[in-house]
C-alpha cells in the first residue's frame, strides 16, 4: 500500500472543507445548497476512500485474497439517498423563499 497524497481520503477531506468554506462565504441560497452538496460529496469520497485497498476487487463472489471493504460503499448508498432528499427539499424551500421574498440573497432573506 503506497502512500499517495492524492487518494480518496485526502480529496474527500479537501472537498468537504471547500464545502464548509463555501457555506461560510456564499451569499446566494442556491450556492449554499450547492456547497452542502459539495460537503457531502467530499464525505462520500472520504468514506469510499476508507474502504479502498490498493489493487482490491469488488467482493461479489469469493476467491479473492485482496478485496475492497464493501461496508463504506453500502453506507454511502444510504448517504446518497439522504443527501438527495435534503437537496431536493432545500431547493424546494429555496423556490418558496424566492416566491415570497423575490430574492435569494441571504442578507435580504434574514428578516
Amino acid at each position: 500500500m503506497s502512500l499517495h497524497l492524492v487518494n480518496g481520503i485526502t480529496i474527500g477531506i479537501v472537498l468537504f472543507l471547500i464545502g464548509v468554506f463555501g457555506c461560510m462565504t456564499q451569499r446566494n441560497l442556491i450556492k449554499i445548497v450547492l456547497c452542502l452538496d459539495i460537503m457531502f460529496l467530499g464525505l462520500i469520497l472520504f468514506f469510499v476512500g476508507l474502504g479502498y485497498t490498493e489493487g482490491g476487487t469488488a467482493p461479489i463472489l469469493g476467491g479473492y485474497s485482496v478485496y475492497v471493504d464493501p461496508l463504506p460503499q453500502t453506507l454511502m448508498l444510504t448517504t446518497v439517498v439522504v443527501e438527495l432528499s435534503v437537496t431536493s427539499l432545500a431547493l424546494a424551500l429555496a423556490i418558496r423563499v424566492y416566491e415570497q421574498y423575490k430574492t435569494l440573497d441571504i442578507e435580504e432573506v434574514r428578516t
Binding site: 452542502l36 464525505l43 472520504f46 427539499l89 424551500l93 423563499v97 415570497q100 421574498y101
Partner: peptide, 23 residues
C-alpha cells in the same frame, strides 16, 4: 420557509460534521 431553510442548512452542516466523525 425562512426558518425551515435556516434550520435545514445549519442542520445539514452539523449532520455532515457528524458523518465526518462517523467516518
Amino acid at each position: 420557509y425562512r426558518a425551515s431553510l435556516k434550520y435545514l442548512i445549519l442542520g445539514s452542516v452539523s449532520s455532515a460534521f457528524f458523518l465526518f466523525a462517523v467516518g
